[in-house]
């Protein structure tokens, strides 16, 4: 059983993805999707850096909510910069040290920072565990670092480590 399902959660999510894409709950689709899910999760065990453990599901839900709110907020603020013809945003780089070392956590943080307009994850240094972020409208560097620490990194640490 363990050999067939090295990553049961991944396999279940893949099956769910298959069924959603096929828009069908028929037995044939479940069998076919199940076969694909098992094959892909077996293949994935060759490249995944390790098992994902979700330690706190409540933090995950909280993170999704926070990310949703921030995406909407930053969309509005970037739009305001764009429609103001005289605005020249004071863009700048931030280099910050992270506590987070879990690879999945880092990947989620990169997706989050990139998905919010106004901040972009540019370069990660695995040796020093620092990340270079570019911010479109940079006013206070320390405030940005504190925001990322408290809003995202704290939750990601709770989820993955």
């Amino acid at each position: 059983m363990k050999r067939l399902f090295p990553y049961p959660v991944l396999a279940a999510l893949l099956l769910l993805l298959w069924l959603v894409l096929q828009q069908s709950m028929g037995l044939g689709q479940i069998l076919l999707g199940g076969a694909v899910a098992i094959a892909v999760s077996l293949a994935a065990s060759a490249i995944l850096p390790g098992r994902v453990r979700f330690r706190r599901i409540t933090s995950l839900v909280q993170l999704i909510a926070v990310a949703g709110i921030d995406i909407i907020r930053s969309n509005i603020s970037v739009l305001l910069i764009l429609i103001n013809p005289r605005a020249t945003p004071s863009a700048g780089f931030i280099k910050m040290e992270l506590q987070l070392t879990n690879q999945f956590g880092l990947a989620v943080l990169a997706c989050l920072l990139t998905a919010t307009p106004g901040s972009a994850w540019l370069e990660y240094d695995g040796e020093r565990n620092t990340v270079l972020i570019h911010v479109l409208d940079l006013i206070d560097k320390d405030e940005w670092i504190a925001t990322i620490r408290h809003r995202y990194e704290r939750l990601l640490l709770e989820i993955f480590e």
Partner: peptide, 9 residues
């Protein structure tokens, strides 16, 4: 930063 508006919201 700008095209991210299209891919997010």
């Amino acid at each position: 930063h700008a095209p991210t508006m299209g891919t997010s919201m």
